[in-house]
Amino acid sequence: MALARAGGAVRWWMMALMVAIILVGDVSSKSFESDDDDADEWSTKSDQHTAVVDLEHMLSEEDGFVSRSKLTYTGPKSGSLRTKRHVSVHVQQAILSSDDMVKFQKLIDSHGYYKLRVQSDVNDPNSEKVMASLPACLLAASNFHEMLRFHVDQHGHIRSIWYQTMVTECPPSIKLSGGKSPIVTSLTVDMESKGPKLSIEPVAKIEKEAQEKQQQDQQSFFKKYWYYIIGGVLIMSLLSGPEDDRGRGGARAAR
């Protein structure tokens, strides 16, 4: 049952990736618009701030982290009042060279992790690095199709990288074919969502009574005094009933 479920998930991911590949083409990019109560205006190009930083990867301990491709962050300028938070992230497509592929094969053979990292503040190269990794075999098993989800904010902070592939289990053995291989990236941008607020704001009892009184004062004349009117009409009709009869009778007699 678990396998069947895993298979279902793989199919779902495959479809998602196909759609993603069609959408992204050579360069992966994704934007995110976040809600903001205080703002309702669209940003313009002049309000945008763009930063390009290195997206680094590690294929071997000896080489350490080296630049894989460029990551372009676009977000609102600091201090802009046009705070509709339109943020986008682009990742340049990476290609693993033949040497890289040899190293990648070694990584797979040693059950190692393929790691990616980027600076957590796009405006500060000395900021903490945000890192994510995958068992190298998973990336190879997915034909180097990766899915990246960056958690960013409008100030240019990257908090985490959600790194996945369509494949969730490593095959027993993987032998990479020699030569270059492109890494196909599907990109998503995540931003923080608002925490829950009170569904009903409580009203103080005095305020509530004042509101009710105000509502009562604003009622129309008929709404306010309908029972007096109905009462009056009823009394009038009861009192006037016999006189009418007498009148009618008199009339009849006159006729």
Binding site: L134, I161, W162, S193, K194, G195
Partner: peptide, 30 residues
């Protein structure tokens, strides 16, 4: 910093992180 009123507002965020892959699966900002 709230640019509209020109002063800093306190913010509390609650992150839900998957500790196997280090992914933030949800954030609630107050």
């Amino acid at each position: 910093r709230n640019e509209r009123i020109g002063q800093a507002d306190p913010v509390v965020r609650v992150y839900l992180i998957d500790t196997v892959i280090g992914a933030i699966v949800h954030t609630a900002s107050h």
